[in-house]
Simulated assay, not measured.
Amino acid sequence: MHGTVAMMRKAAVRAGGVLALAALCACGAPAAREDGALRTGRAYAAALSARDYPAACRLLAPVSREQLVADEQDPCGPALRSLGLPAPGAADGVEVYGRQALLRMKGDTLFLSLFDDGWRITAAGCDRQGGDQPYDCLLKGSG
């Protein structure tokens, strides 16, 4: 009986250590998601600044890219260029909610979604409306 109690205590200590480690890993997860969203937003801003519209298109969510092409009746690069989106400046802040992110940058607000292959821009060229109104975005899509 004494051996069984000792084994149970060891198992409880191990389980407690695993739970503590899992809690620590969970705390780091939001920071990793924030970093990923920031990297994508910065890459998108750099592509727009360089007028590298094909590179910017590769950072768009599939549905957003499809919507842009359908709306503008042009391939993604020329369609994106025709929107006249501002090249965003430095990041002012990022908020991550699970697999969705809001990235405020100087001159633009971006919405992103996390896909299997990383973060993608779902909406750009967004201006905040007054009160409880949603953002008004030049590039719209879905995650």
Rank of each mutant, 00 (worst) to 15 (best):
M1C: 15
M1V: 15
M1S: 15
H2P: 10
T4K: 11
V5C: 13
M8V: 15
A12L: 15
V13A: 09
R14N: 08
A15V: 09
G16Y: 01
G16V: 01
G17P: 00
A20R: 04
L21D: 02
A22M: 11
A22E: 05
A23S: 14
A31N: 13
E34R: 13
E34H: 08
E34M: 14
G36Y: 00
R42E: 08
Y44E: 01
A45T: 04
S49E: 07
S49Y: 01
D52T: 04
D52Y: 03
R58D: 14
L59D: 00
A61D: 01
P62R: 01
V63W: 00
V63M: 04
S64A: 15
E66G: 02
E66Q: 05
E66Y: 02
V69T: 12
E72I: 03
C76T: 13
A79D: 12
L80Q: 07
R81L: 13
S82A: 14
L83K: 06
G84F: 10
G84Q: 08
L85D: 06
L85E: 04
P86V: 10
A87G: 10
G89W: 13
A90Y: 07
A91H: 10
V94P: 01
V96D: 00
R99A: 12
Q100K: 13
Q100G: 06
L103K: 01
L103Y: 02
L103G: 01
R104L: 07
L110S: 06
L112C: 02
L114S: 02
L114R: 02
G118F: 00
G118N: 01
I121E: 01
A123Y: 04
A124V: 04
C126R: 03
G131E: 14
D132R: 14
Y135L: 11
D136L: 05
C137V: 11
C137A: 07
C137D: 14
L138A: 15
L139V: 06
L139S: 06
K140W: 07
G141Q: 02
S142G: 11
